[in-house]
Amino acid sequence: MKNKLLKNDFALIAAIFVIALAAAVFGRAIGRAGDTVEVRVKGEVYAILPLDKPAELDIGGLCVLKTENGEAWIESAVCKNQICVKHRSVSRVGEAIVCLPSGVTVKITGEGGADIVI
């Protein structure tokens, strides 16, 4: 009985170790998760939204921003090149999406993490 418990404990410790190692490896590669997304139009702060609940924001008729599960992305935009819409969703502190034709910038903010992502 005593041996069996030890065996299970060992398996549990091994599992935790593997998960922690994986988190350390992958966590390092992808930066720090953000808390909020800061939306600016021509440099002026337009809105700051939390990333932890689903939301949809019409940015002055220029772009539509969506947030869900810690990520933010531009769902649609009136600009011609649509680079902002094709941009993958952003979630890590410092990551940004820029719609130059409209002067809209969307940046992930939070404690710690990168100051600027290029």
């Binding site: 590669a29 993958r88 410092g94 990168a114 100051d115 600027i116 992502v117």
Partner: peptide, 13 residues
């Protein structure tokens, strides 16, 4: 200062 370098396909490299 900490500067993130984007991965060409999105995310931080």
């Amino acid at each position: 200062w900490e500067i993130g370098i984007s991965s060409p396909d999105g995310g931080i490299l």
